[in-house]
């Protein structure tokens, strides 16, 4: 791997240990990796393996027990203005219009009203919500609300977009469509993305690289480069190569999912 560039985000031996009932539990152990500038990287792993925790650590929301995250050599110790997040749960503000939702981050950052409204308006065009700027989130579908959240993140022109199972709460059809929409948007912006998912096909569809996480204590088990051509149109996504990637990832992750499931069943009984 080449030396990290200016916009690269580096995770260096990130370890996270919890103490519950006096016993230490290692949630993440020595997770390392580099998200190259402008790359779309997915973290794929079984439920409860600490993917979201790792994302929070990269975001600066949670401090790791040991190890560190750096961007351009600078250590991430707190949330940053140039990192933007999209969450699994609906995080739109129901008392704000769609436009004001998208402009929220700019408002916090002190961008003048006229400018932030103009930028938010442009961004609504990019996510295909032009014409909905004066709607309230409640008037929109779940998929549209997640697009509002994506627009709110992208309007900050972030160096890094952190997405925590952003389509997890959507039904399968909507999820696929919004995923394709995200691809189109990403291809226009080329922001670095770290995308958490447990959906193999989603990971292959979107990513340049898929990092497979093991069950607890989680670490990065494998890094799979997805060398599918872009734009990833229907032809690419229905091709045999796509299926080869999906099957390959399933082979890696299958054992992890099975034992994670057994662990959860043991914990429940």
């Amino acid at each position: 791997m080449s030396a990290p560039g200016a916009g690269d985000v580096v995770m260096d031996a990130v370890t996270m240990t919890y103490h519950s009932q006096g016993r230490p539990t290692v949630a993440i152990q020595n997770a390392s990796g580099t998200i190259g500038r402008g790359r779309f990287v997915s973290i794929l792993g079984p439920s409860g393996c600490g993917k979201s925790t790792l994302l929070d650590i990269v975001a600066g929301l949670t401090a790791p027990t040991s190890g560190q995250v750096r961007i351009g050599g600078e250590r991430v110790t707190a949330p940053r203005r140039d990192f933007a997040m999209v969450f699994q749960d609906d995080s739109t503000l129901h008392w704000r219009t769609v436009l004001d939702n998208v402009a929220l981050g700019l408002e916090v950052a002190g961008v003048p009203k006229a400018e932030r409204r103009a930028r938010a308006y442009d961004m609504l065009g990019l996510v295909g919500l032009r014409g909905f700027e004066n709607h309230r989130p409640r008037q929109l579908s779940g998929g549209m609300r997640q697009r509002v959240a994506i627009a709110r993140a992208l309007v900050m022109e972030p160096a890094m977009l952190l997405m925590d199972e952003p389509f997890g709460a959507l039904d399968q059809q909507t999820r696929t469509l919004v995923g394709i929409e995200l691809l189109r948007i990403w291809e226009e912006t080329r922001t670095s993305v770290l995308f958490v998912t447990h959906d193999i096909r989603e990971a292959v569809t979107l990513s340049d690289e898929v990092w497979v996480m093991s069950r607890r204590p989680s670490t990065i088990l494998d890094v799979v480069r997805i060398d599918l051509p872009r734009p990833r149109d229907a032809e690419v996504l229905r091709g045999p190569e796509f299926e080869t990637y999906v099957n390959g990832l399933w082979d890696v992750i299958q054992a992890e999912v099975a034992s994670a499931m057994r662990e959860q069943e043991r914990a429940a009984s």
Binding site: L61, P79, D89, S91, L104, G105, E107, V108, A109
Partner: peptide
């Protein structure tokens, strides 16, 4: 308050006042 709203406030680097005024109180 929704955990997503708290996280949003933190990820946007809100000051305590901004978090309360823009996100948590209206919520």
């Amino acid at each position: 308050l929704r955990p997503a709203h708290r996280k949003l406030a933190r990820s946007l680097c809100c000051t305590r006042g901004q978090a309360a005024r823009l996100i948590l109180l209206p919520s």
